[in-house]
Design a protein around this nucleic acid. Structure first.
Lengths: 142, 142
DNA sequence: GATCAATAATTAATACATTAACAATATGAC
DNA sequence: GTCATATTGTTAATGTATTAATTATTGATC
């Protein structure tokens, strides 16, 4: 009987989040909202599908998250005239400012984690995770 | 700027779950329900607090999960006479049977994952994850 | 140029996550 | 014994996860 890998991943994630959750709470952000903001901060403007994929959020969930982020004045949503089915999102100036503030504190967290865990093991873990995530999806003949 | 470790953990978890989700769906179980069942199958009977902790589920969520599992006839809930604040849970025969069935198929998934990823790297990853999860919690002076 | 199929996001329904407030029971000081 | 206090699970409120069904566009076909 294998030890549950999925639970191990969950617990590790919980451990990591314990460093960041206080920061997000201070800014009244949920984890998911922060993921979206973080990604938009890098890409300036992204289409719905890519955003969902990078943030690890399913489309139906993202719909609500973006609605609330726009309600709170952190994000703009727009449809390209050429294809009104699609949706793009980008940070408002206020969202941008919030990102600048929060990202510093998040970086602090990462430095502290790296200090505790060691930069080598940290890199090793990240490497294994990426490699694992690159595995081909299971064949459907289960 | 660090690559997001928490997102890497999420994506890895998604990859792993893609092998197990079909199994759980076939049995009409959610991820969380399966975690609870899996843990109860090993421990026979567990108190609320420990169960929540091992399953990585917060208390308020667990309340509902156990209620639904009892509704579906998979779990029993009981209060010890000595301390009526506490709550214990254990599998019903039907829950036990379901576990037997599903666990075989879940094991299949693990074997396939191990074949793809390699047993050494698998062990290495599990090791790093456990080590990481054992890090002391952050000091509150953030 | 009307129709059918494909694409892209949303809605619907149920289950869970998260934080804070609550209620019930137990414990200890007096 | 009585009261304050701590313990333990639940409720409440808002936000997200998941699957399936739906709507709104677009593109291709005839």
């Amino acid at each position: 009987m294998h030890e549950s890998l999925t639970i191990a991943l969950l617990q590790a994630r919980e451990t990591a989040m314990s460093w960041f959750r206080p920061v997000l709470n201070r800014h009244n952000l949920t984890e998911q909202q922060w993921r979206v903001i973080r990604i938009l901060a890098v890409h300036r403007s992204l289409d719905f599908h890519q955003l969902a994929s990078e943030a690890c959020i399913l489309r139906p969930s993202l719909t609500g998250i973006l609605t609330r982020l726009e309600r709170d004045g952190l994000v703009w949503r727009m449809k390209p005239v050429s294809d009104q089915r699609k949706l793009f999102a980008s940070l408002t100036p206020r969202g941008e400012a919030l990102y600048q503030e929060a990202s510093h504190q998040v970086e602090q967290g990462y430095r502290e984690i790296e200090r505790q865990f060691g930069p080598e093991k940290m890199a090793q873990l990240q490497g294994l995770l990426y490699e694992f995530s690159a595995l081909p999806p299971p064949s459907d003949d289960v």
